[in-house]
Design a protein around this nucleic acid. Sequence first.
RNA 1: UCCAGCUUAGCUCAGUCGGUAGAGCAGGCGGCUGUUAACCGCCGGGUCGCUGGUUCGAGUCCAGCAGCUGGAGCCA
Length: 453
Amino acid sequence: MQAPPVVSTADLKSHVGQRITLRGWLYARRSSGKIHFIELRDGFGIASCVAGKKDISPEDFETADKIAQESAIEITGDVKEHPKKPGVFEIVLASIKVLAPTAGEYPISPKEHGTDFLMDHRHLWLRSKRQHAIMRVRHTIIQAIRSYFDDGGFTLVDAPIFTPNACEGTSTLFETDYHGDKAYLTQSGQLYMEAAAAAFGKAYCFGPTFRAEKSKTRRHLAEFWMVEPEVAFMDLDGDMDLAEGLLCTIVERVLSQRGEELKVLERDTSKLENVKKAFPRIHYDEAVKILNEHRAQKREEGKTKNDAELAATPDFPWGEDFGAEDETVISSRFDKPVMVHHYPAAVKAFYMKRDPSDPRGVACCVDVLAPEGYGEVIGGGQREDDLNILLAAIEHHKLPMSAFEWYLDLRRYGTFTHAGFGLGVERAVAWICGLPHVRETIPFARMMNRLSP
RNA sequence: UCCAGCUUAGCUCAGUCGGUAGAGCAGGCGGCUGUUAACCGCCGGGUCGCUGGUUCGAGUCCAGCAGCUGGAGCCA
């Protein structure tokens, strides 16, 4: 007799009525004495298997009763529709074999655990349903990003990870020894993409990025993935179009391909359905106005509640960058991502283009704030293309001129209008999956207090 | 770096007024032919984060340290 085909749990419905073999791990086990239920996890999905005492050998029935969680197993049985749930398939077992038992009790039981414990067991936690769903959504987001740029005529030009200088001169970077010289782990591929834009017209890089700040928040990782497109002869408006198109493509792809995963994550997809063109685009001035309306309202509440602290809420000072709470106030006014543009130049990186029409000194830049309080997922803008303004900006920020000579060459040899942005992949994953913290959006998170596993 | 909170069984937690340690789950044994974090009965399981102090007596009160969690700043 021919051995039954080895199939995947994702492929059961095309084998209804057939005898098949599955290989995987024991996810869960339940029993009612004369009937055992086994859930087999194979990396693609989870299949329910039923072992009736009359249907299999006494040895296999005993095995099905005793087998430990996460043992590697191979089962053979017949694919049938679930007697109570149409459209759900289960396997009626004919035989079961333990390929590898567990060395001891599996640490992650199907009960509640604290995050620190789970993060310590991240290598095993990835096997669980929820983490599986998150990683699959992450995969689809990355796939959508790549095809958006690839289909848009972009060339992938990856930036180096070792860099000689602190690119923007603001963040704390990880320092390493590079054959006797100091080198830093990149915090952005941005400057290199400007060189790439002049060489390829449309370019993007996609890789890991590092920040050494001792950040302890739900939005920060020490190592995260960022995609950074840069386009020649594109201005700020074009940049916003590009960013808007990217987010719409990502959300559309996840909604159409990862519905099952979003269900596992209990994500309210109606909020994601809203993510369609056109996103509101508001000037920094208008964002400040929103904040001040909100703060005036807080003062009123303070007066009626007799709360002195609330009543003394000051206005937002023009010229400052928004804090996390400010971003939430602004984005809560809209039901889709909101683009805030023309921030004061002083709070932005030195390479941002100054808007010549505004004497207050604002930059042609944009931050995209995700809805539901997820905050900044994209930051970008038009780059300064005037050599002399750029020279002055580097001096003003007290950055080492010699390290930027190559960058200045881009202005010396055929300078050009160009713009781009950076999208933080983990923040996008957290938003789309509806997660409270970015640590679950990357397979093995690197944070201030976590370097393992 | 700063602010706040937490640390008790493998895991998640309770522990009153300061009086010698408790539950659920997990694990082991037994029962149950449609279970879904199954259920029912029994059993084993503890350096109460560490160090010091107060006290006849500290899981409990005090101090220091460590670890963790959340927030701020920085940013994607």
